[in-house]
Design a protein around this nucleic acid. Structure first.
Lengths: 213, 213
DNA sequence: ACGTTAACGGACGCCTCCGTCCGTTTTGGC
DNA sequence: GCCAAAACGGACGGAGGCGTCCGTTAACGT
């Protein structure tokens, strides 16, 4: 009678699970979130049923697949916070996050999406945003970041960065780098600033739109 | 023998053709280019075959549907060119184009895409870009636009603008407006400019990617 | 070694979209 | 009014994605 509570999974199961995640990471990065799940399964050399058994929904799969990207993201933000110069920290966060997202077509979509089920993903995103907001207000206090910057501007920037399509992965990164540089210029405080129009309510678009469209 | 050369189409045919275009415009604007063609047909109160008879491919339909948007685009550019102050003209072009594109989820996709069949669309886009490049060099000469601006930055900006997702049409426009303002700040020449990283080769992504994804 | 059972994956049915065929309806010249 | 031909649209077959069922395989405890 060895059955009570959370049995350890079989070795091949763990194996498959890992291979699926690997395949998902690779495909999501290059193709975006809308790859057929069969293709992930095929690449992982696994039957469709196996994939669905491990990850009942695409959201769950995406959440787990992007776990380390999310961790990287958090680390980037922490590094930015650690910088004595808040403006330099802020800039580095923007540069690194743009780069991070430019490598991975799927990640931004996931990041910007409001996965309801993926609790931990949402919370870590929000904590990252919170931290950046802190950093931003410090940079404002230092007079380097424009005072009318709001955290939604960052979301705006992420979405915008996600819209960039380049011919090759390398070009994609290059384009994002330039974009980041431009954005930083735009965020910089300068004496004679014209005021910005309000952001309005951004989407945090529903997962359905991201996963299917 | 009244058959030689380009017969005038029947009245109901013209009727349907116009209704199809109307439906396509409406749906492309709200849903983007990836609406099922059946839905366009349904909205136009027309059978699928009729739609395909008038517009054999989605590209052709899109091209014709966006013809007036394209004209508006050209007009905006012309207005910008007509301004005595090239920098003000340049800014207004950016603002108006961002607004134009923010109203219409499909238009940017079409604009940025490299429809091979849609000859006239491509040429008018290129002529618009050419004109903007002229305006840009005048604005540079006036010392208002940063010297390292290149026309690909505009494409970059359009793609980025296209990535913005807002909760409602109104919010979408608001977000684009703010984005345009930020972009203008970024493009403005200021004394102590750090140099920008290169753009790299942007996509002008193939129609397939835009129409299906 | 062997049997129990967790885990697998091929195959199925459902759905949506696509593009075309062909019998039917409508138009416009006479 | 009539009739050729132009135009229509319902219906069909095919392709691809999805999620699940169930007969088969192979891991692990004894």
């Amino acid at each position: 009678m060895t059955h009570r509570l959370s049995r350890i999974p079989r070795s091949d199961a763990l194996d498959n699970r890992e291979r699926i995640l690997e395949a998902a990471r690779a495909l999501f990065a290059t193709e975006g979130l809308n790859v057929p799940l069969r293709e992930v399964a095929r690449r992982a050399d696994v039957g469709p049923a196996t994939l669905y058994r491990h990850f009942p929904t695409k959201e769950i799969l995406a959440t787990e697949a992007f776990a380390d990207q999310m961790a990287t993201c958090q680390r980037v933000v922490d590094e930015g916070l650690a910088d004595q110069d808040p403006w330099r920290g802020f800039r580095s966060v923007i540069e690194k996050i743009c780069e991070l997202h430019s490598h991975d077509r799927g990640f931004t979509a996931a990041f910007v999406s409001a996965f309801p089920k993926a609790v931990d993903f949402t919370t870590s995103r929000d904590s990252a945003l919170k931290a950046i907001a802190d950093l931003a207000s410090r940079a404002k206090a230092a007079g380097k970041l424009r005072p009318d910057f709001v955290i939604d501007d960052l979301i705006l920037m992420l979405m915008a960065n996600n819209g960039i399509q380049a011919a090759s992965p390398a070009a994609q990164v290059a384009a994002s780098r330039r974009f980041a540089a431009l954005v930083i210029q735009a965020f910089q405080a300068v004496p004679e600033r014209v005021s910005l129009p309000p952001v309005g309510r951004l989407a945090l678009v529903s997962p359905g739109m991201i996963l299917s469209d």
